[in-house]
């Protein structure tokens, strides 16, 4: 019978500590299974979020041995089990209790982004025609499961706490999905430059590395958005146009 020790953060910020729990492990187990076992047998009040247990809902984000991961998709056999497995909550968000953080800021940010504004239907049946190629480009961004791991690792948020000036990679991906949507007519470039702080991102790609959906966040979402901002606001030719024809 194999047993492993899990060193889990317990409590809230002021009165928290790591506590060790030793439990049996079985082939194929993921970290979330071990947490459930500990919860059912040793720590009934252990706070953890989860839903689908299949990497589709993005609820069970945590830092496993310091790496931001989904607990449901992290196999125990991918971790060294001869020493305790450390589990702690995402650092970027205020702690509620144990492994659960207050992610409500993300929901507030999303509301601030200009919503989808489709062009009028142009096919005879009052719908639209779109090619699979155009759809594919945006579907990559729409794969996002809102686990907020990218927000967790982004140093602008994690180290500098610029939550009030920068929307973070998740919402740059969201903005990209809207901006590149084949039907959308709204313009979000001004917001990106000013209120949403795209300039704070210096493309270190930490977000891309942790994305469980393997979305190329930096290359496919953030850089093209930065280019739009540059084209619109910092292109000298355009600038001249604006001066000549205000």
């Amino acid at each position: 019978m194999a047993v492993t020790t899990f060193r889990i953060w317990r409590g809230c910020d002021e009165q928290g500590e790591f506590r060790d729990y030793t439990t049996e492990v079985f082939p194929g187990m993921v970290v979330l299974d071990a947490v459930h076992r500990i919860q059912a047998e040793q720590a009934n009040d252990l706070a953890v979020r989860w839903n689908c247990k299949a990497g589709k809902c993005g609820s069970c984000s945590a830092e496993i041995n310091g790496n931001p991961r989904l607990m449901c998709m992290t196999r125990l056999n991918s971790l060294p089990l001869d020493r305790p497995v450390t589990l702690q909550p995402m650092k970027t968000f205020p702690l509620i209790k144990d492994l659960v953080t207050d992610v409500s800021w993300n929901y507030a940010v999303k509301k601030e982004i200009r919503k989808f504004e489709p062009r009028p239907p142009d096919a005879q049946d009052r719908t639209w025609r779109m090619s699979q190629g155009d759809v594919d480009r945006v579907q990559e961004f729409r794969r996002c499961i809102e686990c907020y791991l990218c927000q967790d690792v982004c140093h602008v948020l994690r180290e500098h706490s610029l939550h009030d000036r920068f929307i973070g990679p998740r919402f740059l991906v969201h903005t990209a999905a809207l901006e590149m949507h084949p039907l959308d007519n709204a313009n979000r470039t001004g917001d990106l430059k000013d209120r949403h702080g795209i300039g704070f991102c210096n493309i270190t790609k930490c977000c891309t590395k942790v994305c469980p959906e393997a979305i190329a966040i930096t290359d496919n979402a953030i850089i093209p958005l930065k280019e739009r901002v540059v084209d619109e606001y910092f292109d000298p030719v355009r600038k001249l146009f604006r001066i000549l024809r205000p």
């Binding site: 489709p118 719908t127 639209w128 025609r129 779109m130 090619s131 759809v135 729409r142 809207l178 949507h181």
Partner: peptide
Amino acid sequence: VRELEAWGALFDRTKDGR
């Protein structure tokens, strides 16, 4: 379903774009 598309859902497409 068409209403979802008008709200931004992006379904897979047929060859003629439907």
